[in-house]
Each structure stands twice: as structure tokens, then as C-alpha cells.
Simulated scan of single mutants.
Amino acid sequence: MTSASAECANGRPLRVLHVDDDPMNLRVVQEILTAFGHAGVMACSGQEALEHLSTEVFDVVLMDVHMPGMTGIEVVERLRASLGPARNTPVIALTADVLSRRPQEYAALGFDDFVSKPILVSGLMASIHRAASGVTPGRRLSRVG
């Protein structure tokens, strides 16, 4: 783990659930997480994400917004409405659709932050570390990219 990632992650690797219906996006983000010393778990659907969240603990969830079947927004709604401890897990929206929603709208939907696609490594890692360290209280958002 690099010193920057150790400092931001309070000296420990993070456990990150990445949800995306695109296998290439899953692979790219997995490579980024691994390069920074974090453990990534991949899910290719909203239902699979909810199953992971019901049985495993994650520091952060990276959630594609537009997926077939159950959208990322629906997953976050269900997660936030659940009674388990996972309901408070920070969730970062990953979306190429940054022009149609303002940052405050993602907050109102239950996301803690968002990262635009195509993903820039620096923006993704900054968002992950902010969310994992609780720097996004009240689901306050800032645009990163």
C-alpha cells in the first residue's frame, strides 16, 4: 500500500464492494483498488450487491447508477431503508450521466458522493478515502472526476 493510501485509509486496507453491469468497468476498478492495497469485491447486479451487503461488511460501496433490472438508485433506496448495519455504509455513485443531475440530487437519493465516468484514478481514490474516513457527513457531495 502506498503511503498516501495508508494515510487516507487510517493505515488499513479498505474493503470495497463495486457494483457494475459492465465486466470491463469491474475489471478496471478492481485493478485500481488492488494497486492501492484495497480489497475489492465485485457484483454485476443490484440484487447481487444487496446479497453481499446482507452478509458481509464493507467500508465503501461503489455503485453504477444505470444498470438493467435494479438501478443503483433502487439499490441505495433499499439499502438505506434496511434495518441492518449495512444501511449506513457509504455509497459512491459511479455515472457517466453527470450533466442530468446536480451533486445535491445524488445526496437526496442516498449517495455519499459521486465519481464521473470515465473514471480518473485520483478522483476515485479521493472519493473512496473521504467516504471511508467519514468526511462526507450528511451526505455532503463534491464533484470529483
Rank of each mutant, 00 (worst) to 15 (best):
T55R: 15
N88P: 00
S54F: 00
R78T: 05
T55W: 09
A81Y: 01
M63L: 06
G72W: 10
E77Y: 01
V75Q: 04
L53C: 07
R80M: 08
A49P: 02
L83M: 12
T71N: 01
M63E: 02
H52D: 01
T89D: 02
T71V: 08
M67E: 09
V60Y: 11
V65W: 07
S54W: 04
R80K: 08
T55P: 03
S54L: 01
E56P: 02
R87M: 04
E77V: 03
L53M: 12
T71M: 10
G72K: 15
H66E: 15
M63W: 02
A49W: 08
T71S: 15
G69R: 06
D64N: 14
E56K: 13
R80S: 09
L53A: 08
E77I: 03
V60I: 10
V76E: 09
S54N: 04
T89C: 14
R87G: 03
H66V: 15
R87P: 01
H66I: 15
I73C: 02
L53H: 04
V57W: 05
L83W: 01
T55S: 12
V61F: 06
H52V: 00
A49V: 07
V61H: 10
E56W: 05
A86L: 06
V76C: 10
H52N: 12
N88V: 07
V76D: 10
E56D: 13
R78G: 11
V57F: 04
H52A: 01
L79Q: 10
E74H: 04
P68E: 12
V65N: 08
T55N: 12
M67R: 12
R87I: 02
N88G: 13
M63F: 03
A86W: 03
F58Y: 13
V75P: 10
M70W: 03
G69F: 03
R78K: 15
M67W: 11
D64P: 13
G69T: 08
E74Y: 05
A86F: 04
V75F: 05
N88Y: 00
E74V: 10
G69M: 10
V65C: 14
S54A: 11
T71D: 13
L62I: 07
G72R: 14
V65D: 02
V65M: 14
E56Q: 15
E51L: 09
P68G: 14
T71W: 05
S54K: 02
H66T: 15
V65G: 10
M67G: 06
S82N: 08
L53N: 11
T89F: 00
R80G: 09
E74M: 12
E51P: 00
G69C: 09
T89K: 08
R78P: 05
T89W: 01
P85W: 00
E51I: 09
E77Q: 15
R78S: 10
H66C: 12
G72S: 15
T89Q: 07
G84I: 05
M67F: 03
M67C: 03
H52E: 11
L53V: 07
M63V: 01
V76N: 12
L62E: 10
D59L: 11
E56I: 06
E51C: 03
